[in-house]
């Protein structure tokens, strides 16, 4: 673990988030994070939505304390921390995210020649703007109210009402097609999503499906035990054993 000083460049509205740019010598990779000292009692976890050699951009909620800094301000960071997504010579990549968690998968949008992104959200207005994604990415939308795309939720086995369609059969095909699957959803969704993977692939290799777990991470080093979650192999720390886990490891509760 490193402690490093970043330079805050800007915070710009990027609805529904704010895009925050930090220049730093060692930026986090996709799925890793840094803990930024922003003046509160605890550090704030920042995940990269875009990474380059000079730093990274994070998408934060409106009003996040880091958005109040002035350009040029120094920010004390712990990290990069944790285990991020691990993809090896990938040609076909499937990404699945809840709309408000999509930002952590954004660094993977160019990670393969063929990327399919499935986004689930409550309604059309919460979906990412297509022009915010690389043109080569195939985007599939799932809404809980059916206002656009397939009718959610993703894992539903219920028949769809007339005029609407579930994504289930297509999702099974996509899981069979892809070489790697990366997910960013609430943790309680993962058991059902792990079930879909098991149905669609007979013997998925270890880390075929990689799921990022969002939780509070006050210390980032395994000291506080706030971030412990149950897994197939006992409780683990999201901050150091994750935040990216093998879906089948955590989707078994």
């Amino acid at each position: 673990m490193k402690q490093q000083t970043a330079t805050f460049r800007f915070a710009l509205p990027s609805p529904p988030h704010w895009a925050v740019r930090l220049d730093v010598a060692q930026p986090p990779r996709a799925g890793q994070y840094v803990l930024a000292e922003c003046g509160g009692p605890l550090r704030e976890a920042l995940f990269p939505a875009d990474v380059d050699a000079d730093g990274f951009t994070a998408l934060t909620p409106r009003g996040h304390p880091i958005t109040r800094l002035l350009p040029g301000a120094s920010v004390d960071l712990l990290g990069p921390l944790g285990n991020g997504f691990r993809l090896d010579r990938v040609q076909r990549l499937l990404l699945i995210a809840e709309a408000d968690k999509l930002s952590v998968l954004r660094p993977l949008l160019n990670a393969a020649p063929a990327v399919t992104l499935v986004v689930e959200g409550p309604t059309r207005a919460r979906m990412p703007a297509p022009d915010s994604l690389p043109p080569a990415v195939e985007l599939l939308l799932v809404t809980l109210d059916g206002s656009v795309g397939y009718l959610g939720p993703l894992e539903s086995q219920e028949p769809a009402p007339a005029g609407q369609e579930r994504i289930g059969p297509l999702l099974a095909e996509l899981i069979a097609w892809t070489e790697w699957l990366c997910l960013a959803c609430r943790r309680e969704r993962y058991p059902a999503l792990a079930g879909l993977v098991r149905q669609a692939r007979l013997q998925p290799t270890a880390h075929f499906a990689q799921a990022l777990v969002h939780t509070e991470m006050p210390c980032g080093v395994g000291a506080c035990d706030v971030c412990r979650i149950p897994t197939r192999h006992g409780e683990k720390h999201v901050c150091t054993d994750g935040p990216v886990f093998d879906l089948l490891e955590i989707g078994n509760e």
């Binding site: 605890l42 550090r43 210390c219 980032g220």
Partner: peptide, 9 residues
């Protein structure tokens, strides 16, 4: 003893 401040600093 120093408590949760250790996590920040």
């Amino acid at each position: 003893q120093v408590d949760v401040l250790v996590w920040r600093t």
